[in-house]
């Protein structure tokens, strides 16, 4: 392996790690759903970069045969499988992204906000769940099963 290939490898892996971390940061820290979706895109690119880098071989050619059309004549080839996989993964990412954006549009329409906390609270209210976790004291009376099971006779 040449020095160049090693540097290239380091750069590719470092790039992949950076993209993954950036994407994760985008998914974890912002509260705006649109930003989270964009974080997802970055994360996927990072993973794809890693996947395609994993198929690299030093001193090998692209897996596309030219004139004499024999594998022997072409010499060593880069692994073609990850390239095909990445293509698939990218398309999957596009599909998910498109649907995600469609949902973002709808959420914005329904709630007028893209703040994930606000959306969660609105959703909870809409589905009838408690909007926020109540303190231990603020429960509905008689909700405790055991307390409800106690009858007047054993604790007059």
């Amino acid at each position: 392996m040449t020095m160049d290939a090693e540097m290239l490898g380091k750069a590719l892996y470092a790039g992949a790690v950076c993209l993954v971390l950036l994407g994760l940061y985008g998914m974890v820290v912002p509260r705006n759903l649109m930003r989270i979706v964009l974080g997802l895109v970055l994360l996927e690119s990072g993973v794809n970069l890693f996947l395609v880098a994993a198929g690299f071989r030093a001193d090998a050619a692209a897996p596309i045969l030219t004139a004499p059309f024999t594998a022997q004549a072409a010499g060593p080839l880069v692994d073609p499988v990850p390239q095909a996989l990445v293509l698939t993964a990218i398309v999957i990412g596009v599909g998910v992204l498109a649907l995600g954006l469609a949902l973002v549009v709808r959420v914005k329409e329904a709630y007028g906000t893209l703040d994930t906390h606000a959306v969660a609270n609105r959703m909870a209210r809409e589905t009838g769940a408690d909007p926020a976790v109540t303190a231990a004291g603020a429960r509905t009376p008689g909700a405790l099963p055991v307390a409800a099971g106690r009858t007047a006779e054993d604790a007059p």
Partner: peptide, 11 residues
């Protein structure tokens, strides 16, 4: 319940 209700589950 709080864990499941949290808005920052990716974290």
């Amino acid at each position: 319940h709080g864990v499941f209700r949290a808005a920052y589950t990716p974290l």
